[in-house]
Design a protein around this nucleic acid. Structure first.
Length: 1250
RNA sequence: GGGCCAGUAGCUCAGGUGGUUAGAGCGCACGCCUGAUAAGCGUGAGGUCGGCAGUUCAAGUCUGCCCUGGCCCA
């Protein structure tokens, strides 16, 4: 059956705004028609590839708004490029390894530390890691689809898969062969009691404020034993492991003598033994003097450069007793120098506390470790220099420290160490120092220590020049990242600490021989099997016993640890090192590992095609993360030889990505970071699907004694109290009616009003007992202590869902658009439901209104896209049509250009401009053209123009707002033409019709719009309703060139301003309403006159503007007196502007001045009354709810003047009001209306259409 | 403590190479329109351009120092 609706040219646009609903239909359409899959193949196999790399998320947490931003940016450009004719491949990916995953699993199992994991069993632990990693995959996939992020998830790469791991092995194997892998030490935050390094996230959770000893120790100089460095440390237990003393670069130091006690100070007794003079930073001398309570007399000066290299006696001889004389050979010249106990220069030395000289124990501080690494670089054989550490991994002192310290927990020895220093006269000062120090977040009484662990490194510093060249070739957005944050990071590069003493990660593929020192890095399972055919027997046995075992696990701990093979050099056995690798290295291997290169068939071709990526995009925090790992891994692995071997050619920089869009963070509406624990977090669902949130249920009684001051009367039946922030979060006003539902009372709902209670925590709602009973709800026991983050975990009877029943959520397009259009993507974005709606209104809603208008009238007129052919050629169409099509062409040009440059924000701005002009000018000015009956030529032109504009906008906006673009396209194009491309996303991106660009017309229209605007401002300022016609408007132009332009739009201006006559003139008087203002043209005159230009300004302001302007015109120059000096000015040196004289009905703008003649003749008043009449009738029509096309019978009675006006304007009334008959009667029974001084009664009834 | 980025109207943002009345949209107020109607439109009020110095005839724009926020690193 063909319904009436199906017969319409266009499906009527739903008057209700519910974007999520139509988006669901479109999602279903895309699924059904497999539009994404088609878009990948539609351009044929020969189409050029466009490559995008997906930075893999970890799915062990819920996706949040930041993920929406990245996914939305990642989606935009491939969609655009696909419409530009490219094969835009988008392979998904999942990051699955790493410490955060292990920590999550530890939390679940309520175990902590290496030993606990081993006790639990590495095998079941690893299996739980896999489960954990995919815990929220479903949510991720749902969000991905819902926001319209097109990515191939079904063949997504997964970092723990065997093929991926083997690719990573291949890369490491390459680096190993080139000598870029070595063993060293890395300083980590170490939980000694548990034998585990903690991630920075874990460390951050465990800070406590504590008092630690702060020690000022003396390090006597070897050459001048009477002088000592005053060295500051807060970790006395690291002093036995001292290696260097560090001073700050380019800093003044002074030599002082300890003098008399300061007056009014408590001076401590000092026993300094042979030391007489102290060296401290000049800037900290007084501070130290105050601490000691003694004068410090300056007896000499020094600088960091002079101090550098001086040898000193370490405070403890733990290592010095054996190694004092040890030296090492320098790399750059043939010289042996002492390895230890020298002054070095380091940036990290601060001058805000201490002495400006810092104790460096390379094993016990990150700065210290790095400083040591730099020292090692000086030597011919860096590995010849060992690391001094007097501490065992369990946190106890080593035997070599000797009694009484050996075997004891280091921090317990602080006091005795200090006492020993004092006894040896090496202690200058001691005090307590209050600071924040990290403790283990699970074992809260255990302080962490920084501790050097043996680790494998990649020698990135060896290839740094190539990495930098690579960076230089990347197009960074914003550009400052290149030489700013990223460049700086490269400049300060240190070798990559690759290994991790953990369980869940890519195992480091280095095998060591037990018998000799032979090392190998096999690159695949196949290679291992070649070396030992039985290498994986244990795995196959395990798999036979448990067929559910995933094949990928054969390359993971614990199974891989059992793989051994005979040493090729001796009779020993090769065993793998125990470590796994940094998961950042995994992610950096993604360009080739996603294809399983080189071991998988076809991977070589795929790599060749998709290397480098055209663009990647992630947030700024990835600078040192993925941006770095990608660049570094590819720089290292793909040296020229490897490129030739793997790609068959060498590629110029950059690789592996040509462009990188660095995104800002998503913050709340106050610019604060969104955080679940603070509760200032807007879940994506609120934007995408339903404005609803869950709250913990509280009752009034729980507030007593707490901070919230709640008026007891505010809590009553039918009212829910919440925090103001929560109210704003749902974009609701106080008093809004909401729907309450509960998980324990399915199907039941309650309508209540929302009220704000001051100081209420977020995410709680106070309900009246009766209301709670209605929904079967209890209360959350924590009351005011309820934390937002815990709300979803509460039992169902303690939670209530609050939903806004009136306003649908903005939807996915709005969410996307918000991120594109609100600010450049590298700025931080202030996100809230309200803001998303704001930007939606500005663009999507406006566009939708134009679209709705179009369908209404096209349906009335039966206009179909086929009738486009009946429109005249563009050049012959009315000015307004030509203007719109010119704007359209310009916009196509600009948007395309911006998207090619990856400027999403600028492109979005252009689209907003276009839609603004389309709605606010073109349609407003064209509405009357659609009203008349029948399809005249002008109307045919208008339909064709508007239709084309809408279709083009649909295509332009398709990469940005794919859902609404699809709706437009389906209704405007495909409904009439089933042969058209199935989806807007399968069409070609619009090409600018350059022949239609009319820059002059654009400029003219701008002037017209400004003129109109000025005229309306005059009316507003003088309280002249637009409905009242005026006799005349004078437009006094600043620029003569605009005169003919405006003349051609005179009718339009008259109509907008409702004036009967328009006069255009160029810088002329109009009855004194205009004055002339002369100013220097500063750009020209400034350089000529210099300082005097200000005097010239005053002189010009003083002359009679009109006369001066006349003189300029007459003689081609102007003479003025500047002070006593005559000055001759050329026309270029003077800028003349007209402005409205005070007291006239006139306004000034850039184009010039608009003057309105405000005297009302009787005739004008009559004209005004007629318009009033029409207006009142239209209001009545609306009141009656009449359709646009309904015909009416109008009866009216009124004062004499009204009747005269009505009689004279009968035809006009009939036409404007669709009144078939207009009857003037003695008395109409209707309320009397006032029209100024006149009165009228109006009655109308609908006429049935015959 | 260091590096990078940002700070312009209530909000979100524009403001090549310095040029003298600092712009837009939204919001707000007032008004218009009533054949896009829970829509459309106009006008207006809001700014010591984060602060303080400096360079210059002239600074939102250049320089220095400082303040606030964000991120990264200590």
């Amino acid at each position: 059956m063909t319904s009436h609706a199906d017969a319409l040219p266009f499906r009527a646009v739903d008057p209700e705004l519910d974007f999520p609903r139509s988006e669901q239909e479109i999602l279903e359409f895309w699924r059904r028609e497999r539009v994404f899959e088609r878009s990948l193949t539609a351009r044929g196999p020969e189409a050029p590839a466009f490559t995008f790399y997906e930075g893999p998320p970890t799915a062990n947490g819920m996706p949040h708004n930041g993920h929406v931003l990245t996914r939305v940016m990642k989606d935009l450009f491939p969609r655009f490029q696909a419409m530009q004719g490219k094969r835009a491949l988008r392979k998904g990916g999942w990051d699955t390894h790493g410490l955060p995953v292990e920590v999550e699993v530890e939390k679940e199992l309520r175990i902590h530390g290496k030993a606990a994991i081993q006790a639990y069993g590495v095998e079941p632990f690893v299996r739980r890691c896999i489960e954990s990693v995919f815990r929220y995959t479903a949510e991720w996939e749902r969000l991905t689809e819902r926001i319209g992020f097109w990515v191939s998830l079904e063949d997504a790469y997964v970092t723990f898969h065997k093929s991926y791991v083997e690719s990573v092995w291949w890369a490491l194997s390459r680096l190993f062969e080139r000598g870029l892998l070595y063993q060293g030490h890395k300083v980590v935050w170490w939980w000694a009691q548990g034998g585990t390094a903690l991630s920075s996230g874990e460390v951050g959770q465990g800070y406590k404020t504590v008092d630690d000893p702060s020690v000022y120790a003396l390090f006597p100089l070897v050459e001048q034993p009477h002088r000592a460095l005053v060295v500051w440390t807060t970790t006395p237990w690291t002093l036995p492991s001292n290696g260097y003393a560090a001073v700050r670069p380019s800093t003044d130091y002074c030599v002082v003598r300890v003098g008399e006690p300061l007056p009014k100070r408590k001076a401590q007794p000092l026993e300094l033994g042979p030391v007489e003079e102290l060296i401290v930073a000049a800037a900290l001398r007084e501070q130290l003097s105050a601490k000691l309570g003694r004068e410090l007399e300056v007896v000499g000066s020094s600088s960091s450069e002079q101090l550098e290299g001086l040898r000193y006696r370490p405070p403890f001889d733990t290592f010095a007793k054996e190694r004092w004389g040890w030296t090492a050979k320098l790399a750059d010249h043939d010289e042996e120098v002492p390895q230890w106990w020298r002054v070095i220069v380091e940036d990290f030395v601060a001058l805000d506390s201490g002495t400006g000289i810092v104790h460096v124990a390379p094993a016990f501080g990150e700065d210290d470790g790095r400083a040591h690494a730099r020292q090692r670089q000086r030597y011919a054989d860096p590995d010849a220099v060992e690391l001094l550490s007097a501490v065992e991994p369990d946190g106890s002192f080593k035997e070599l420290v000797g009694t009484p310290y050996a075997g004891r927990w280091v921090k317990d020895c602080d006091k005795e160490l200090i006492a020993e220093l004092r006894a040896r006269r090496l202690l200058l000062h001691e005090e307590l120092y209050r600071h924040d120090y990290p403790f283990c977040w699970r074992a809260e009484q255990d302080p962490l220590i920084q501790f050097a662990r043996p680790a494998w490194f990649i020698r990135t510093t060896a290839e740094l020049a190539r990495a930098k060249a690579n960076n230089q070739a990347i197009q960074w957005l914003p550009p400052h990242v290149k030489d700013g944050r990223f460049g700086d990071f490269l400049d300060n590069n240190v070798d990559w600490a690759l290994s991790r003493e953990r369980f869940w990660g890519t195992p480091l593929n280095v095998w060591l021989c037990e018998g000799c020192d032979h090392r190998e890095a096999p690159s695949s399972v196949a290679e291992l099997t070649q070396r030992n055919p039985h290498a994986f027997d244990h795995w196959h046995a395990a798999k036979a016993a448990d067929p559910t075992l995933q094949d990928d696990l054969m390359v993971h701990k614990p199974w891989i640890d059992e793989v051994t093979y005979p040493c090729p050099r001796c009779a020993g056995t090769m065993r793998r090192v125990p470590e796994v690798i940094d998961c950042w290295f995994d992610s950096g291997c993604m360009p080739f590992a996603q294809w399983g290169f080189p071991q998988l068939e076809g991977s070589r071709e795929k790599l060749k095609e998709a290397f480098p990526a055209n663009f990647i995009s992630e947030a700024i925090d990835q600078t040192r993360g993925w941006f770095y790992s990608l660049l570094m891994v590819s720089t290292l692995v793909f040296d020229e030889a490897t490129q030739r071997e793997c790609l068959g050619e060498t590629r110029p920089w950059p690789h592996p990505y040509e462009r990188c869009i660095v995104l800002g963070h998503v913050s709340d509406r106050d610019g604060k970071k969104e955080s679940k624990s603070r509760g200032n977090y807007t879940p994506p669902d609120i934007i995408l699907d339903k404005v609803s949130m869950e709250y913990a249920v509280l009752e009034l009684g729980q507030l007593e004694g707490g901070r919230p001051a709640v008026d007891a009367s505010a809590s009553r039946r039918g009212v829910a109290l919440i925090a103001r922030e929560d109210l704003e979060g749902m974009d609701l006003e106080e008093g809004a009616e909401v729907r309450l539902t509960s998980g324990v009372a399915p199907g039941r709902e309650l309508r209540v009003q929302l009220r704000v209670a001051k100081h209420l925590p977020r995410r709680v709602a106070v309900l009246a007992p009766e209301d709670r009973a209605e929904l079967g709800l209890g209360v959350a026991p924590k009351g005011l202590g309820q934390r937002p983050v815990e709300v979803p975990e509460l039992p169902p009877e303690q939670r209530v869902r609050v939903e806004d029943p009136l306003t649908p959520a903005p939807g996915a397009d709005a969410f996307r658009w918000f991120f594109y259009a609100s600010s450049p993507p590298w700025n931080n974005t202030r996100h809230s439901l309200k803001n998303v709606r704001l930007y939606q209104k500005d663009y999507l809603v406006k566009l939708r209104n134009v679209y709705a208008f179009f369908t209404i009238y096209a349906n009335i007129d039966g206009w179909r896209p086929g009738r486009c052919a009946e429109a005249r050629p563009v050049a012959a169409r009315p000015l307004l049509d030509r203007w719109l099509l010119s704007e359209l062409a310009l916009t196509v040009q600009a948007v395309t250009e911006q998207l090619e440059q990856y400027h999403a924000y600028d492109a979005a701005l252009r689209l907003v401009d276009l839609v603004e002009g389309l709605s606010n000018w073109y349609l407003r000015r064209s509405r009357a053209r659609f009203w008349g009956s029948g399809l005249g030529q002008d109307k045919l032109d208008a339909y064709a123009t508007l239709h084309e504009a809408l279709v083009t906008v649909a295509q332009l906006t398709a990469p940005f707002t794919p859902f609404f673009a699809e709706e437009l396209y389906q209704n405007l194009v495909r409904r009439a033409d089933p042969g058209a491309a199935v989806s807007v996303h399968l069409t070609d991106y619009p090409r600018a019709r350059e022949e239609r660009v009319d820059a002059e017309l654009t400029a003219q229209m701008r002037a017209v719009r400004e003129t109109v605007s000025l005229g309306l401002a005059v009316r507003a300022a003088n309280r002249l309703k637009v409905r009242q016609p005026l006799a005349r408007a004078d437009v006094v132009l600043n620029d003569a060139a605009l005169e003919p332009a405006l003349r051609s739009h005179a009718l339009l201006i008259q109509e907008e301003l409702n004036v009967n006559e328009l006069r255009l003139m160029v810088r002329a008087h109009t009855d004194g309403a205009v004055t002339f203002k002369l100013q220097p043209n500063f750009r020209v005159l400034g350089p000529r006159l210099g300082k005097d230009v200000q005097a010239a300004k005053q002189a010009l302001a003083a002359v009679d503007g009109a006369q001066a302007f006349a003189e300029l015109g007459r003689e081609g120059r102007l003479r003025v007196l500047v002070g006593q000096t005559p000055l001759e000015l050329s026309p270029e040196e003077v800028s003349v502007g007209v402005s409205a004289a005070p007291g006239f009905a006139a306004e000034t703008g850039k184009v010039g001045v608009v003057v309105l003649h405000t005297t009302l003749s009787e005739e004008l008043v009559d004209q005004g009354l007629l318009r009033e009449l029409v207006s009142r009738v239209q209001a009545l029509r609306k009141e009656r709810g009449l359709a646009f096309t309904d015909r009416v019978r109008l009866r009216l009675s009124g004062t004499e003047r009204i009747e005269r006006v009505a009689r004279a304007g009968l035809g006009h009334l009939q036409e404007e009001c669709l009144a078939s008959t207009v009857e003037l009667l003695e008395d109409v029974s209707a309320p009397e209306l006032e029209l100024g001084e006149e009165r009228v009664r109006l009655a109308l009834e609908r006429l049935e259409v015959p």
